[in-house]
């Protein structure tokens, strides 16, 4: 005796649609945009893609060029500023004092000096080819630079003043 337990096609379709919908919505859980998000941005002409470890290398001058071979001009925010401290904490993974020590050591060893500083980092990368910098989302402006990636804010980001 042949017994068939085929589910109705409509049920299958409904399940598939539901599954797709679930898969699309549940895991993604869109990251909330936060003004304290750190946006790693570069000059619009830069075509390379880099990760956070490479950004760290570039800002510590362990790496001098983009993966494509072009020169990188990292632009720092002013030492001691909220933006610089957040970049140190979230990307360089060092403190203000540790970064100063790092540059003092490298200056004596090999004349390696810290990247230049500009108060308006986003302005600096606007026309300077090969430049790379960071900015809080609150200060970010669409269309003036290319966003490489975003380092999300965390609880500590809200300490020590506004962006």
């Amino acid at each position: 005796m042949h017994t068939s337990h085929k589910p109705p096609i409509a049920s299958l379709l409904a399940a598939a649609v539901l599954g797709l919908a679930m898969s699309g919505s549940t895991p993604v859980q869109a990251q909330k945009e936060d003004p304290y998000d750190l946006m790693i941005v570069c000059n619009k002409a830069v075509k390379d893609n880099i990760d956070v470890a490479t950004v760290r290398d570039l800002f510590l001058r362990k790496r001098l060029t983009w993966p494509s071979g072009a020169n990188v001009v990292p632009i720092n925010a002013s030492m001691g500023s909220k933006l610089r401290r957040e970049f140190q904490r979230r990307v360089l993974l060092i403190t203000d004092a540790e970064e100063t020590k790092y540059w003092e050591k490298n200056k004596i060893m090999s004349a390696l000096t810290a990247p230049p500083e500009f108060e308006g980092t986003l302005r600096a990368v606007f026309k300077l080819s090969g430049s790379l910098t960071y900015v809080f989302r609150a200060q970010f402006k669409e269309g003036v630079s290319r966003v490489m990636f975003v380092v999300p804010s965390d609880e500590k980001s809200y300490e020590g003043g506004k962006p």
Partner: peptide, 15 residues
Amino acid sequence: EMEAFEATAGEMTSF
């Protein structure tokens, strides 16, 4: 804003 931005960013064009 873009006009103001371009005006202030004009100096930083080269090494």
